[in-house]
Design a protein around this nucleic acid. Structure first.
Lengths: 159, 159
DNA sequence: TGTTCAGGTGGACAACTTGTATATTTACTG
DNA sequence: CAGTAAATATACAAGTTGTCCACCTGAACA
């Protein structure tokens, strides 16, 4: 199930100027308002667009340090109790279970390197965590983005 | 520079129901419309809110595989020409330079494991990339989130 | 061939929201 | 105590939204 050219144009338009309304989108795309409305409903129903939440920059809140922390978990305990505990730490922004020698990969933010040490200590204290290893993000030459992927469609369903 | 309770409530409200307008927010928060408008303007001006872009789920576009690829770079070439090339690959969603034995950390998506191999090949072909090592994300027990951090404020500036 | 169907179009309507402005009040700061 | 930044209440025109409806088109199918 993919999206067609019009969907892609609509998503791109909204990503570039998020405060646009349905009517203005329809003008820019040269289609009827009802079409834009229907497309947006459909994209949301299909789970392509999951929301329009405000994007918050942790750095603007004083969380200048981003780090990636890789965890080894005591095998007997399973992954989920650990993930539940990690979810309780606000500075843990994201947790994945992974292939390879380690078991989990987390994105963590902190106010400083000293604060990062504190956050890592919280992670280490989680029952079931055996070992952690961290790398600090120094710079982000490509910030998270999704538009190139949307633009790079297999332009199917072009109706 | 931090945000106060009202800012946090506003951000949380918008994150939970993003399609709310300024007027409705003011009603829910029990403040004047002008206040909400001023707060949002201020948060945007300070870079706390960087946008309201539609959130797109790569999985809903058929990109079911997420991987983290760590790169070693030939030192002479510097980081940036490599990042520029990586930015041209749509499946590379994010690139950071990092501390530690490796030089860069990327988030990558692909349509399948076979497709991931193709994307990794593209990355390896980038001039300056010496070695890559990848782990696949099997599950995401904590998807990217920012609200706990916003809720966990040092509630300063409470006016 | 003819029917069905999903999707698109254009038009219409009331109800509501936005952008903008102003005058007033409140509450810190020096 | 004066000055300043923020919040409030209020107002207005202009624009947008949600929701109808009738109609048209092209694709799929029996």
């Amino acid at each position: 199930m993919t999206i067609d050219r019009l969907d892609a144009r609509l998503i791109t338009l909204l990503a570039e100027e998020p405060k646009l309304g349905v009517l203005e989108c329809s003008r820019r795309l040269g289609v009827a308002r009802g079409t834009v409305q229907a497309r947006l409903d459909r994209l949301a129903a299909r789970g392509v667009i999951t929301g329009y939440g405000p994007d918050i920059a942790p750095a603007a809140l004083g969380y200048d340090v981003t780090a990636f922390v890789t965890l080894q978990i005591r095998q007997v305990s399973g992954h989920d109790p650990v993930a539940d505990q990690l979810a309780k730490i606000p500075q843990v922004l994201e947790v994945h279970t992974i292939t390879g020698g380690d078991d989990m990969h987390c994105r963590v933010v902190a106010r400083s390197n000293a604060d990062l040490q504190r956050v890592i200590d919280l992670i280490v204290e989680v029952r079931g965590v055996v070992r952690t290893s961290s790398v600090i993000a120094l710079d982000t030459p490509v910030p998270y983005r999704i538009l190139p992927l949307v633009a790079d469609l297999p332009h199917q369903g072009g109706r």
